[in-house]
Amino acid sequence: MTLNREISDDQIIALLNQSAQQEQGFRLLMAKYQERLYRHIRRLVIDHEDANDVLQNCLIKAFRAIDRFEGKSGLYTWLYRIASNEAFTFLERKKRKMAASIDGEDQLAAANRLRADSYFNGDEAQALLHRALTGLPDKQREVFTLRYFEDMGYQEMSDMLGTSVGALKASYHHAVKKIEQFFKNEQIR
């Protein structure tokens, strides 16, 4: 497994582009990135089953589009964008299904999902944080998640998202303030 993770992106892409070795390339790609992608998706959709569906769809899309990967960005950046798109599309579809366009309802639904999810072992404060996150706009939520949970620097984030460092800082600060306010409101209740 360790060997798989040390294989370079170029080697993986080369294997994926040879039809006889596609399966090997794909399995190496998954071994290298599946956990990181899963964690990113899971923080956005919260529920494990949902994250599993989104991750599988993301990997299938990536495999089918690998011939369009131009190498302008890193392989993980490319996969990350596919994963984010899939996750936000999934959430949008789910929101429409539930007809819960009001933030409060979203947060309530998220809280219920979290309680029902047996793969959550956090405390009340952590659950509250996830509820607060579901009320944020997509961009702020993504930026907050990358910085807060994945310890990502602004420059790296900028390269990954194609957004200026200044805009990212503003998004993150805004998100933190909103979450802080959410905590205060919940304490008052």
């Binding site: 399966e23 794909f26 998954m30 964690r39 599993n52 072992n121 956090g122 405390d123």
Partner: peptide, 27 residues
């Protein structure tokens, strides 16, 4: 508050052995 909470992580866990069988499923 968020600084203190950060040390706890996200509280999200995965089923045991989830990643081992994933590549077979997707393939």
């Amino acid at each position: 508050r968020l600084r203190d909470l950060k040390a706890k992580g996200d509280g999200l866990t995965t089923p045991e052995g989830y990643f081992e069988g994933l590549s077979d499923q997707v393939w």
